[in-house]
Design a protein around this nucleic acid. Sequence first.
DNA 1: GGGGTTATTTACCGCTAAGTACAGATATCT
DNA 2: AGATATCTGTACTTAGCGGTAAATAACCCC
Lengths: 204, 204
Amino acid sequence: MSVVSCTPSMGRPRAFDAETALEKALDVFWRKGYDGTSLSDLTEAMGINKPSLYAAFGNKEQLFLKAIELYESRPCSFFLPALEKPTAYQVAEHMLYGAAMNMADQAHPQGCVVVQGALSCSEAAATVKAALLNRRVEGEQKLCARFEQAKIDGDLPANTDAETLARYLGTVLQGMAIQANNGASSEQLRQVAEMTLQAFPRKS
Amino acid sequence: MSVVSCTPSMGRPRAFDAETALEKALDVFWRKGYDGTSLSDLTEAMGINKPSLYAAFGNKEQLFLKAIELYESRPCSFFLPALEKPTAYQVAEHMLYGAAMNMADQAHPQGCVVVQGALSCSEAAATVKAALLNRRVEGEQKLCARFEQAKIDGDLPANTDAETLARYLGTVLQGMAIQANNGASSEQLRQVAEMTLQAFPRKS
DNA sequence: GGGGTTATTTACCGCTAAGTACAGATATCT
DNA sequence: AGATATCTGTACTTAGCGGTAAATAACCCC
């Protein structure tokens, strides 16, 4: 699934790669947040002019939403793949270690754009704030459903509160995003992940 | 220590209460973040005009910093008081339950302004971003020092990694701020607090 | 090569941002 | 009362915002 408009056969061809430009936009939104990013920031980083941006991506808001889609579909994304692990404990393990690795990775801005892209923001950003909030909540619901399944599978005790367990894990993951912004290293986050797993119920 | 300029004896007296106005400003910054808050938002909420704001508080940046000082000195603040508890476990307990209570309190915006006031932001907000980051890191250092003392006191095992423990707790607390923004209730956060404490080392 | 189509460039729009000059209002001090 | 000091309200400045109109350039199809 291509996140950007596909190139038509007729007319002057686009002088930039839309996917690359979107990556650049994501980087800016990630570092500065939606409110803190201006169109000048974007066009400069993307290497295009404003009319090109508007023709290719609609407007600032739609550009942001497409950048988030890209963010979540990237190969280095760790959340959804972790859900596929065979046991609840392994799901948590992969998610926490994946987050530790990813969120402090110096190859891109620290933290998580879904957490920090529009946390507290102006009314103009209400739509994107809601979109991000939705993704955070949905992620936790998927985690909850995965833990319910784990109870059926028998790799979580039957009396486990799956919702609270998912919320606990979500809390730590989101906290790790802040920690990465605070300057914590991957190794330091890995230690936090390890400690987090100590509160995790084991197969009884 | 008064956070605002003290009233002089001569000249026309101020028509508003500076402390009350600062509370209003804090509320706006808390909900909208530094970048998302305009001077119009502020003057409207504070019930004063721009020249009064500038005369009393300097500028937007200084107003923000004063609002943060007020935030941390408020009676409902839970972080510093928790450090005074007799044992490391009680420190963690009071901090986590205090956060659960406070961050989802409907009497004010959700979450924590130190976390969400300027997480990802424009270059214009670099100073306030650094100030908030500093406070988060300092809080964790105080926590770490408290846990080191606990090892001396004997209410934490001697082989405890105080730094990691403090970072783990900081991670959960900061994660709870995001959770509160996600709409989590105090009761739901309390459950997360409970689970967090299960990873906490007990007196051996 | 010409017509149709799309992208790029430059210049601009209306609006709001943060911050301030200045005149008038209201207090204290002598 | 008068002088002095401070605050308030209106109106303003400069700069940047998100977004767009219109002319020009580059491509495909016939």
